[in-house]
Design a binder for these strands. Structure first.
Lengths: 339, 339
DNA sequence: GTTGGCATTTGCAGCGCTGCAAAGGACTAT
DNA sequence: ATAGTCCTTTGCAGCGCTGCAAATGCCAAC
């Protein structure tokens, strides 16, 4: 049978459709008697407002898009897990998009491609987009950018202090007496900003300790995944002078690196200490457990949603702000050993 | 500035709005000349069809909901990663919902709660819902159920042959000469159907090999996560007669179990062999790598989307079918050792 | 008794698009 | 010349809801 509409309810309750709408939307000036009549009719007919029609009428979709490069990367999955409830609490649905880090795809999204009317705003964690790409986007799209990007003032940006966090990680390795420290995950190109910040933190930590940096120990990888970590680590181990510690730019990289080390019969952390980045659940259960930098994901999610909704409902344009969530160092077995 | 509408384009091109609509939708009988005129106008105005309005007009939302218990469980993340492109290829957007396995939440969804008009159909991987819950759903909602559930004929169901797969896993352990084999992940209650099927496979394998089953080695867990695996394994190790192999009902459980074993200074697989289920990426890089049952996730995703779309567009009602995707045993270090 | 003010309810129009069916036009067959 | 056919384009109405502003009713105040 056809779904009940506002009009059906109105008829049954003996009021105008507009009044039913008022009741449904919690409009203040409705007498208790009317409200009750209407509510009874609603219950009787099993009426549910048609979100589509509502959205069309008021020009809002009630959905926000969250765009990540890879859904199956634990860090993003965990972040999404936090974003969805935060958005729902504010009455928004989340539309998830994965781009595989494809610049074109990401570009189409921020220019509001074919599906542009489907969401009121977007939280994006760009991988392929450069700073420049971001500035030619559809400016009418409320946007919050996650991850390390310098903010150009037209959108909001939320992340953690990558330089400081990386410095913390490397200082931790140094404090354990490690001298030859490698880094896995540097990226030279325009879109590798996050990587570059981490590399800067790597240098800072050395400088702070008066330790020289062996540039050849900074390994570049195309992505931050396990396979890249494993490969890069293999290259390091093939050298005559392998490192005694490695700062990995993600926990996945760390996981791959550890895999390679153990495969070769070496020990973590006795032979080589490893620290990662992101604090994914995996690292708390792997063997050894992985020391890491833990960004406050809940805070990031919360901030991102709040900020986006503010942009959606508030008057445009608002100057973009840069918000930093907290992070902390979590030492585990991969640096401390089994205690 | 206001977005261009169909009418704007029509005016500029000097045709009726309906004709523009025809062009946009690729209606066959439009002369090349007209089509070109319209297309030029579209380009000039930067017109993009308003999906919301379109959906309202034709009564379709163009979105399908995919409901999983936990987004950050690698298995579901990997499955989603496969479902999204499959759906998009057919012109559908995916709306992701996580329920935390909450029965109420899942129940509201399949009864088409408040957001009911937002999607045309649903793919759900239920955790809290029992067979009975599923049958009182909104029957007008095209539904595809994932995971192990017996199909009641009103919806489609897609999974793998859990009993056979589990039997394969346990037979593998037996073929390696293991005698005291434990199982972690059994669930007695109505919603633990998947677990019960796996337990049945566990029994079958023993029977096939003429090996007795020690029922006390079948450990129940509330969920299939790492923490549960770790706890259950600890209980097994605390016994006077610990097992020499464990069949874990998910790779996460296996990961947790391995964690515990290694923490206690025992070796995998020398002391205890472990096999998991799901083939998540994690297990290919952990140490040791985890032997597992690999369900064909791409096939599951493909089948689920195809079947759902068929239900959405086809004439209702169609009898529910039971589709099985392939699975295979992937032996790795956690049973074979380092080769 | 009348007026003003407020609480409550209503009608209208329209969000931007498509389904439907029919009108118009060109062409062929009779 | 006329009817029949097919291709192309069009108009109408309406999907179900809300913004807006006006209408209605009620009460206190004059």
């Amino acid at each position: 049978m056809r779904d009940a509409t506002l009009r059906d309810v109105a008829e049954l309750a003996g009021v105008s459709p507009r009044t039913v709408s008022n009741v449904v939307n919690g409009y203040a000036h409705v007498t208790a008697a009317t409200r009750e009549k209407v509510e009874r009719a609603i219950a009787e007919l099993g009426y549910r407002p048609n979100v589509l029609a509502r959205n069309l009428a008021n020009g809002r979709s009630g959905q926000i898009a969250v765009v990540v490069p890879y859904l199956d990367t634990p860090y993003f999955a965990e972040l999404l897990q936090a974003i969805i409830p935060a958005a729902r609490k504010s009455g928004y649905n989340v539309l998830i998009d994965q781009t595989d880090g494809d610049r074109q795809h990401e570009g189409e999204l921020i220019r509001r491609g074919s599906r542009g009317f489907l969401f009121d705003g977007m939280i994006i964690s760009p991988l392929g987009l450069s700073q420049q790409d971001l500035s030619v986007r559809d400016l009418s799209l409320p946007l919050v950018v996650l991850g390390e990007r310098v903010c150009d003032g037209t959108f909001d940006h939320i992340g953690i202090d990558d330089v400081a966090a990386s410095q913390d990680a490397v200082s931790h390795l140094i404090s354990l007496g490690r001298k030859r420290i490698a880094a896995i995950g540097d990226q030279p190109y325009a879109t590798g900003e996050a990587a570059q910040l981490r590399t800067r933190g790597f240098h800072n930590a050395h400088a702070a300790a008066g330790l020289p940096v062996d540039e050849s120990l900074i390994i570049r990888t195309p992505r931050f995944n396990r396979a890249d970590g494993a490969t890069a680590m293999a290259a390091l181990l093939d050298r005559d002078d392998p490192p005694d510690a490695v700062f990995c730019y993600s926990d996945l990289v760390a996981s791959g690196a550890i895999h390679t080390i153990l495969e070769r019969g070496l020990r973590v952390p006795e032979d080589i200490a490893i620290i990662g980045y992101d604090d994914i659940e995996d690292g708390r259960y792997s063997h050894p457990t992985i020391s890491t930098i833990s960004p406050d994901k809940t805070a990031i999610a919360q901030l991102a949603v709040e900020r986006l909704i503010m942009r959606i409902s508030g008057p445009q344009p608002v100057a973009g702000v840069e918000l930093l969530a907290k992070h902390r160092l979590i030492p585990r077995q991969s640096t401390l050993g089994r205690s």
